[in-house]
Design a binder for these strands. Structure first.
Lengths: 212, 212
DNA sequence: CCGACACTAGACAGATCTGTCTGCTATCGT
DNA sequence: ACGATAGCAGACAGATCTGTCTAGTGTCGG
């Protein structure tokens, strides 16, 4: 309604939507160009004029995932009041995603597993991981953790592990477990239990990861 | 010295060794048959007479990984005395592996990310995951955890998350963090801190996972 | 009206991949 | 000595994949 073309989406947009669906569902290497253009109803020449190469399409696919992921998480986190709830809310969002029938784990890890290192996948993937880590660090700091980076390191492991488990075991059960563990770790970091062992985690020199 | 053929390994063994190296390093789909036979110094006909198809080779590759992984973990766990040390020892073994320059994450997840669901990869992969979960469940029970399956669910998440983190971040740092968190979770499960929140995890109906 | 632009349809080249087939060689048990 | 077995070398077929190119169509601003 309040937008650009009421008609049908541009070839570029249809291409991106098809790539997003097919690449995520079956893998960037497994799915060929022909499958993508057929699904998008687009000519092959349009693909190459828009993205230059398949690698260009893969990059655009991952960048789109990265951007929408940030938007979704930040948007969903706004409904939580306290810093604690916002931190745990990241796992609530993950639980929602993991419960979707189309869930196939982390798009960046999946693409990375199919690609030779040093390519475009690694680049976008690194940016995505840096954002996640920095998100957890910020939330940990806001929640009052004395060592936000250390707590973030723990939460990232839980987050990754949940993603893997939900995909491989074909059930979102891990998300519930991970959220509970995250809550316990947060409590421990906040010193709710003075004699509780505070899990050690090395503070990596990532204090100023750029949140692009 | 004390073995079978002092000469050179059979074509099958060389094939398997090459597949193990190349498939793990670059992916089962990315690496073609020609690369494998060239690296193994073996004729193409030998490959197909030994394994029938590329899928057969992939299955043998993953089954070999599965078997050696079990043997290695069980062997390394024997040097620990207490149940607690054995449980945490799983993360020590993981730390060693993650520190190796050739480490590329979980071979089963990587292969799964490259393959369409329902194939041979999924089958071997499921067996591997079932074994891991059952290992943690047994160790948790021996360590005296009141709900071994619940603790195992938490440990599996840490294990998976470490594997992902070490691969994607290209550093084994996560293993140290995960081990510390595992220790804290074990202590919490054992009730060292009566008023500590015991993280909830649903007890899945996997009490009798066959440890093949 | 018309020229720029975005797009479509599909043939085509060249590379690569799986899998088959033929012919040759070496080794080993009997 | 000899036949069976295991293996090597490489050509070949057929499919598939990326990427290019030609030619035609529709649309829209000026």
């Amino acid at each position: 309604m309040s937008g650009a073309s009421p008609r049908k989406p541009s070839a570029r947009d249809r291409l991106l939507a098809s790539a997003d669906e097919l690449f995520y569902a079956e893998g960037v290497h497994t799915v060929g160009i022909d499958r993508v253009i057929e699904h998008a109803g687009v000519a092959k020449a349009s693909l190459y004029s828009c993205f230059g190469s398949k690698d260009g399409l893969i990059r655009a696919y991952l960048e789109g995932r990265h951007q929408r992921r940030r938007e979704r998480i930040l948007a969903e986190l706004e409904r939580f009041r306290t810093p604690r709830d916002r931190l745990l809310g990241v796992f609530d969002v993950l639980a929602e995603q993991a419960a979707a029938p189309t869930f196939r784990g982390c798009a960046f890890y999946n693409a990375s597993a199919e690609s030779t290192p040093g390519g475009v996948v690694e680049e976008v993937s690194d940016a995505n991981r840096a954002w996640t880590r920095s998100l957890f660090t910020d939330l940990a700091r806001e929640a009052g953790a004395p060592d936000p980076a250390a707590l973030a390191a723990q939460l990232v492991i839980l987050y990754d592990g949940t993603s893997v488990g939900a995909r491989m075991d074909r059930t979102p059960a891990a998300a519930v477990t991970a959220r509970a563990v995250a809550a316990a770790l947060l409590d421990a970091a906040l010193g709710d239990h003075p004699d509780a062992p505070v899990p050690y985690a090395p503070t990596r020199g990532d204090g100023d990861v750029t949140m692009r």
